[in-house]
Design a protein around this nucleic acid. Structure first.
Length: 220
DNA sequence: AATTTCAACAACCGCAACATC
DNA sequence: AGATGTTGCGGTTGTTGAAAT
């Protein structure tokens, strides 16, 4: 793996005049790759004072970074619980299954995979899995076979191709989802299985930790 | 050996939701 | 109830090392 802190030169970024989060608009704020010294400052500070209050944290920790940058660095790299290294085949399999269920809800997916961050999973998806699915003739957005005929309507009226799983998706894989829904219902005392045919419900539901096992068992 | 292209991933941005005053 | 600040998310970009030419 490349050393993320190997360069001390800040990455040039596009400038914007859009009103934005205050911590990002300040002049004199350092950008680009983090140095080992900065990592140590942030790590030591969070271990001592705890994570949070990101806006004021940089000043308190003696860092010339914006709060957003500090939070991102902590969440994606410095947190002790972050697992480094290659995505294992079983993790890849789980990502695929969860993405089929949840769409691009990276934080939700990451929440079900211990030690992996949303950024890591998003990157892995974009650089590996989406290409892998395409090479297998599967649309990475819908997890359905790629349609060779662009004129045929793959997405019925009102369906947003960019969104997560649609009701049509759910219907077409109805049996699988029904099994999941039944198991979830049994486990968490839910009664109306029709809710599981509604993508809006999936968007709203905070999936409990036990869901992992249910997904695994129901879809294998 | 030098240059170009590709792949991987860290980091930034805008936005929205939520919290606080 | 509205304004302001904070946090978190997803999309995107830029840098860098590896591979190919």
């Amino acid at each position: 793996m490349r050393n993320p802190s190997s360069s001390s030169s800040p990455m040039p970024r596009k400038t914007t005049t859009t009103a934005t989060t205050p911590c990002c608009s300040k002049v004199g704020i350092k950008r680009g790759p983090w140095t080992p010294e900065e990592d140590e400052l942030l790590s030591n500070y969070v271990k001592k004072e705890g994570a949070g209050r990101w806006r004021t944290l940089p000043k308190r920790a003696g860092l010339l970074r914006c709060g957003k940058s500090c939070r991102l660095r902590w969440m994606n790299y410095l947190r002790p619980s972050v697992k480094r290294g290659r995505i294992a085949p079983d993790e890849e399999d789980l990502i695929l299954r969860l993405h089929r269920l949840l769409g691009n809800r990276w934080s939700l997916i990451a929440g079900r995979i211990p030690g992996r961050t949303d950024n890591e999973i998003k990157n892995y998806w974009n650089t590996h899995l989406s290409k892998k699915l395409i090479s297998q003739g599967i649309d990475p957005r819908t997890h359905k076979p790629l349609n060779p005929n662009p004129n045929s309507s793959q997405f019925p009226q009102g369906q947003n191709q960019n969104s997560g799983p649609t009701s049509v998706d759910l219907e077409e894989t109805g049996r699988t989802y029904r099994v999941i829904a039944t198991k979830v219902s049994q486990t968490f005392n839910m009664t109306n299985l029709d809710h599981y045919q509604n993508p809006m419900v999936w968007q709203m539901v905070t999936i409990p930790a036990e869901f992992d096992a249910l997904v695994m068992s129901a879809t294998k």
